[in-house]
Amino acid sequence: MEPRLLLIHYLREVVGLTGPHIGCETSLCGACTVELDGQAVKSCTMFAVQADGAKLVTIEGLAADGKLHKMQEAFWNEHGLQCGFCTPGMIIASKQILDRNPNPTEEEIRHGIEGNICRCTGYQHIVNAVRAAAKAAGA
């Protein structure tokens, strides 16, 4: 493949995974966030060749056996989205928060989604969703 092919273009146009979105294309909005070897990354700011051999998970890969991931479930229940454009990246970033800290404070949740911009929700319902997912995992 061409070295200059960005990971987001590889995912969307070569593999056909259109879950990760192209928002700002300047590493600011986080809509293109995917998981690379367990770490949330902005796939618009990586070349696909850099991910050679890595394990990649997009929003499409979170549900297992027809069952939504607990973070997806929480976004649904708490209405953590309106238009849905930021949601695939937001959910991957939110999953990262709980992967690293199962019981985050509100401040830690907001710090954890700093790299993801949502223009609809004002973030409150997203924060609620992450909290609900943490609670559900602890229950």
């Binding site: 590493s27 986080g30 770490q39 990354v41 902005k42 700011t45 970033a93 990262q96 954890g112 790299g115």
Partner: peptide, 9 residues
């Protein structure tokens, strides 16, 4: 620095 995704890379 930056945000979580930036700090990861």
């Amino acid at each position: 620095i930056g945000d979580v995704q930036v700090r990861n890379r």
